[in-house]
Design a protein around this nucleic acid. Structure first.
Length: 262
DNA sequence: AGCCAGGACAAGT
DNA sequence: ACTTGTCATGGC
């Protein structure tokens, strides 16, 4: 059992932020997080601290969770960098303070956001649980998925996305996407990803942001599009900020909260 | 019952 | 380069 401290962290806000789909809520700020081949128990024990436990040595749990929750990113600085004149973003960031952009496994992020297209979050969760063969089961790697048939994948409820997932799994395993993408800059990574089946501009940006830690990526889904239309008729000034993806996350979560979708 | 979902894609302007 | 219809499934 280890406790980690963060400048800002809120498990409930992260769980509702639409970037991860496999967290299992256990009530009272507790979650089971299946990742990295095991399951971490996480519990919010204060505004800046989370307690973790897993069937690993504490030092390994500590190292894994520091990486997963990106402890080194300075969210205080990101918050201070918000344009003071931008009232909407300040309100969104205040409401969603404690969200962190997770460093999720690359292939899991790719598969998850292929499934996410034209889909709703509750159903994305059930589909991914089936793809893993259980809520707590480890995420299958690309080579495992590539060995399945389109019919087997369809039977998990993916619909027309089954062929996308199958083809992209094959490419990712064949071309070693992990090695190809890791360390790539935003523009070439986005281009590589968009050459995959079922990955367009929005999904590519989600993968860059949540899977590669590229915080300049700015996923434009229907919610963020609405925010920009309503609140930024002359353009969103910090869209090209190195932290644009974080601001997008605040907007997305805040807008859904206002609509009661969390 | 019908609308919509963290869109991508191909075909048509 | 921009617009439009279509795609499979089920949550609400």
């Amino acid at each position: 059992m280890t406790t980690l401290k963060f400048d800002h962290i809120d498990l409930d806000l992260i769980a509702a932020s639409g970037q991860c789909f496999r967290w299992i809520p256990l009530g009272a700020g507790k979650y089971a997080i299946p990742v990295y081949g095991t399951v971490f128990a996480a519990e919010q024990i204060g505004p800046h601290a989370v307690r973790f436990e897993a069937e690993w040595p504490d030092a390994c749990v500590c190292e894994a969770m520091e990486h997963y929750f990106d402890v080194q990113s300075d969210y205080g600085a990101i918050l201070r960098d918000i344009d003071p004149a931008d009232g909407y973003l300040r309100a969104a960031a205040e409401s969603e303070q404690g969200i962190r952009i997770l460093r999720q496994p690359l292939w899991e992020t790719i598969a998850s956001f292929i499934v996410s297209q034209n889909n709703n979050i509750p159903r994305i969760r059930t589909i991914l649980a089936r793809l893993c063969g259980g809520a707590q089961a480890p995420f299958p790697d690309a080579a495992d998925v590539a060995r399945l048939t389109a019919q087997e994948i369809r039977a998990m409820g993916l619909g027309y996305r089954a062929e996308y997932l199958l083809r992209t799994a094959g490419r990712f395993a064949q071309e070693d996407g992990e090695a190809a993408l890791r360390g790539m800059a935003y523009a070439p990574a986005r281009e590589w990803l968009m050459a995959c089946a079922g990955i367009g501009p929005k999904v590519a940006d989600c993968i860059c942001l949540y899977g590669l830690g590229l915080k300049e990526a700015f996923p434009m889904d229907v919610w963020v599009k609405r925010v920009l239309e309503r609140h930024y008729p002359d353009g969103f000034g910090q869209r090209t900020s190195p932290y644009a993806g974080v601001y997008q996350q605040y907007m997305f979560a805040y807008e859904r909260k206002l609509e009661g979708r969390t």
